[in-house]
Amino acid sequence: MVRLKNRYFLCKVIFPSPDESNEMLTSQEFRRAIEKAARKSLGSSDLALWATGYEMHINSGSSIFDSYLLVGKVIKVNSHSKTAIVRVQHRATRMLSQLLPFIKQHQKTDVIIQTLHVTGTVATCQKALIKYERRTLLELLRNTTNKDHRKKIQEALLSCTLDLQGQKIASDNDNDGFT
């Protein structure tokens, strides 16, 4: 039994266009964007190294990880907060970290990809995501004056705790890590 080490990238996709709320982040398009950038800037041997041991998770619903789609590559996408999780082999970590800044377009719209965190397991990646979400919600809460909006944000803040996600983290860990 050999453990294959992986690295999980937590990425935020920023749409610099003024009508950002209308833009949708889909996992297939995001994967296509990464592959396009990889084909342009990597050689064939690097491309092969990067493409191995890489699966894909999709989220289309309200909770963070809903359904899995295994196509040999892992990407988890949250279309509401426009965050994505990309998994690569440990030895291709640096390659992906240097590839992500060269991604320019997602579904023919200009994007900026910001790497928020790089972790060794999905669980820690999810923790980092929750931490990030909490921080953005707190910032929103500070800057809003509308009472209804504040109530909604406070409810959202209470709902995003680590305890609620703990069960899901355990179920996620069963699926990956060991071969």
Binding site: P16, R94, Q98, L100, P101, I112, I113, Q114, T115
Partner: peptide, 18 residues
């Protein structure tokens, strides 16, 4: 010149290693 040319600081640090 345009916002699309900008990248986040840590990503730029990764580029600099390149």
């Amino acid at each position: 010149e345009w916002p699309t040319d900008l990248r986040a600081p840590y990503d730029v640090a990764n580029l600099a290693i390149l």
